[in-house]
């Protein structure tokens, strides 16, 4: 059966090939060093285009920090890394006023958060007061110090890693901070084949430091901002807006959840679905995009009821049931 009608309809398609090519190039750069973790890489690219912060959770040694560091290398922007420790103070992150003996004034010395891509390693090792210092900068992209506002340059992305909460010496992040992350990605162990490949590379004398230097920047800050504007132009049908609102709204009334997701979650789902559609070369969002991203957008924003926790349920299970229950708009 010839599909002329399809060909004719596809003429309406917006061209996202430039964006697709750029994302493909970033993936290739990352794959020079990172084995597997395709889902993690794709989600990081979605967040990069959707202007969202990402929380990576996984046990030690599954390439969370490495992948985040490499992503930062592929974009030609300022990059800083902060290792969160139990004694870290808010001023160690945001900056502090230092007395200048010559002028006799206090000068603001910017903290490491002043960069385009900030990697916060082991974010849940710092106490609540240090976590709280990130609230303003993550949401509003500026810092207020001594009554003066300091705006950060765009793009500004926080990539944070954390070990599971059961690990010793970790704190649970405040809900307000968790809500500021667009995604929480659970970084899994590599598959057997992938692990064999990692060992093979190591056996052949792979040099991680040298490999890291091989990763070259693909985008400049200005190019990234252009691509983000292209993502904004992705079409999203009104029925799908309702679908997003229904999914998120359901988390607020579900008997299995003690805390539902906020409107910020709806916005994150909307923006990320548009970015995913663009990466896949589509100028419009489909329900698949929303369903695929719903768990990573919602899992850290909802809290199970105590009885669900006692049963051993996970937020992902409840989210999956909600997705199955709500009718896909068509």
């Amino acid at each position: 059966m010839e599909n002329e009608a399809l060909t004719l309809v596809q003429e309406n398609k917006t061209d996202y090939s430039v964006l697709q090519n750029a994302m493909q190039a970033i993936k290739q750069e990352l794959r020079q060093v990172v084995v597997g973790q395709d889902n993690l890489i794709e989600l990081l690219l979605v967040a990069l285009l959707a202007d969202g912060h990402v929380l990576l959770e996984g046990v030690p040694g599954v390439a969370k920090t490495l992948t985040a560091k490499l992503l930062a290398r592929t974009v030609q922007v300022d990059f800083n890394r902060i290792q969160f420790t139990p004694d870290l103070m808010p001023s160690d992150v945001l900056g502090t006023s230092v007395f200048h003996p010559v002028t006799g004034t206090f000068d603001y010395k910017k903290g490491p958060v002043f960069a385009n891509i900030v990697l916060i390693d082991e974010i849940n090792r710092a106490p609540a007061k240090t976590q709280a210092s990130l609230f303003e900068v993550m949401e509003e992209q500026h810092i207020t110090h001594d009554g003066v506002r300091y705006t950060l340059d765009a793009p500004f992305i926080v990539l944070a890693t954390q070990n599971p909460i059961e690990q010793e010496g970790t704190y649970r992040l405040p809900e307000a901070q968790l809500d500021r992350f667009m995604f929480k990605v659970l970084v899994a162990y590599p598959s057997l084949a992938e692990e064999v490949f990692i060992l093979e590379l190591q056996h052949k004398g792979a040099n991680l430091k040298k490999d890291l230097e091989c990763v070259k920047p693909v985008l400049t800050a200005a190019e990234l901002i252009d691509l983000r504007q292209a993502v904004q132009a992705v079409h999203l049908d009104k029925k799908l807006l309702e679908y997003i609102a229904q999914l998120v709204g359901e988390t607020r009334i579900s008997k299995s959840l003690y805390l539902g997701a906020s409107p910020r979650a709806s916005i994150a789902l909307l923006n990320s679905a548009k970015a995913l559609a663009a990466i896949r070369g589509r100028g419009f969002v489909t329900p698949e995009d929303i369903q695929e991203l719903a768990p990573v957008v919602l899992r850290h924003r909802v809290m199970l009821t105590p009885e669900r926790e006692m049963e051993g349920s996970t937020p992902d299970e409840v989210i999956k049931m909600i997705i199955q229950k709500i009718e896909v708009p068509r």
Binding site: N3, A5, L6, V9, Q10, N12, K13, H235, D237, L240, R282, G283, F284, V285, T286, P287, R330
Partner: peptide, 12 residues
Amino acid sequence: NMFEYVWYGGAT
């Protein structure tokens, strides 16, 4: 594919 371009994509 055709349905999605028309319905979700807003093609006329």
